[in-house]
Design a protein around this nucleic acid. Structure first.
Lengths: 210, 210
DNA sequence: CGGTGACACGTACGGTGTACGTACGTCAAT
DNA sequence: ATTGACGTACGTACACCGTACGTGTCACCG
């Protein structure tokens, strides 16, 4: 395998998915590639740039299948789910994606498509940006919860609300709903929120007629 | 100043706010406190636990002023903004808060109040949890964007969409709206999204009558 | 043939978290 | 008063990290 930037980035992604972001080190990646540590620096300026490459690459794997002629709610739905799909495919890498702001072209394509969709929904420029930001915030927050559940993929992830341990006097609601709080069908919850948001922006008044 | 867990955590928070999360090291904190490095380990098991303490402490600083008799939309609004307020007060620390899942009692209090509010809005248990998760996702996503803009508080944060650099043929929307994408009144955008979400859940059908 | 660049690599430096052994206080029981 | 246990402070040491720098080996081109 030829040693270049993309093979290094790909190896980093595999390592992240296998052992978590904490396991990433230049020495480790070099070892996985069977090369010396400093060899990496012939292709990547530093570790931060490598992680940026990871973010870019993961982002670029999003497959948008929504066709521009479909109704805008369908397009928004498909774009949101396309985003989440790669996140669940690269859960550990998603953490490093959302943990750094991205301004590369890989991050620009989703923005472009979303803005076009929102404008086709009848929003003017400023409102399209506003709506986009709301969607991004919701999606990023959802993914953060979803993949944050597996920080090190601890076998017995004790990060649950033990019903018998919460003080029912102080936290009656939490106590009563503990069983609901402990389980989460991420796919379904995400879809529920997306539909709610679509409904919300559908009824939002347009500044100008289409 | 007595050396104990909370003074150590407080020193860590100050350090994070002053120089960013990357500047945090056991040696640095010990130096700021004027003690030896290993002395910290008499009060804190390890660095991860210390950062967890940071998250807990920041979380516990949220001041909820909404009174339980106010209409539920007002309460939701106040809770959401209380959340954001401490985030803008401790921007760098907020990054470490949202980057780890929290199940301590500090994280339980906001959940309790939110659930009570949503149930007073007429939702049953499962729907209250659903709505809460949507709100948390939106809030976390918003805060991540807001504080992510200041990762190291670089003076000239070049992470902007340069209008003249984007390919207008490939990204017409991004090109046209570049000036809008570059500026963001976080306070206003956050409020806008909160109102949209409140509207959305207000019209959502209840499973059972109040 | 000589030179020039790209690339692989080893060494070394200053940093990190923390395991371990040690020293010094205070306080309880003898 | 003596002894012992215990909590706390501290220094040393180890393994690991990112990466600056110098060196060697090629392929390629003049």
């Amino acid at each position: 395998m030829a040693l270049n930037r993309s093979t290094i980035v790909e190896t980093a992604i595999e390592l992240i998915e296998r052992e978590g972001a904490d396991a990433v080190s230049m020495r480790r990646i070099a070892a996985d590639l069977g090369v010396g540590v400093m060899t990496l620096y012939n292709h990547v300026p530093n570790k931060a740039a490598l992680l940026e490459g990871v973010a870019e690459t993961v982002l670029s794997k999003i497959e948008f299948r929504d066709d521009p002629d479909a109704p805008w709610p369908d397009r928004v739905r498909m774009q949101a789910h396309a985003f989440r799909q790669i996140a669940s495919h690269y859960p550990r890498s998603t953490m490093v994606v959302v943990s750094r702001q991205l301004n590369s072209t890989a991050g620009l394509l989703p923005v472009e498509r979303a803005l076009a969709t929102l404008r086709s929904a009848g929003f003017d420029g400023p409102d399209s940006v506003r709506m986009l930001r709301i969607f991004i915030a919701y999606i990023v927050g959802s993914l953060l919860r979803e993949v944050g559940v597996t920080p090190t993929f601890a076998p017995a992830h004790g990060s649950a609300v033990r019903p018998q341990e919460v003080d029912r006097a102080l936290f009656p609601q939490v106590g009563e709903l503990a069983s609901l709080l402990n389980v989460c069908d991420h796919e379904e919850e995400f879809a529920f929120g997306v539909e709610l948001l679509i409904q919300a922006i559908a009824v939002h008044p347009r500044r100008k007629p289409v």
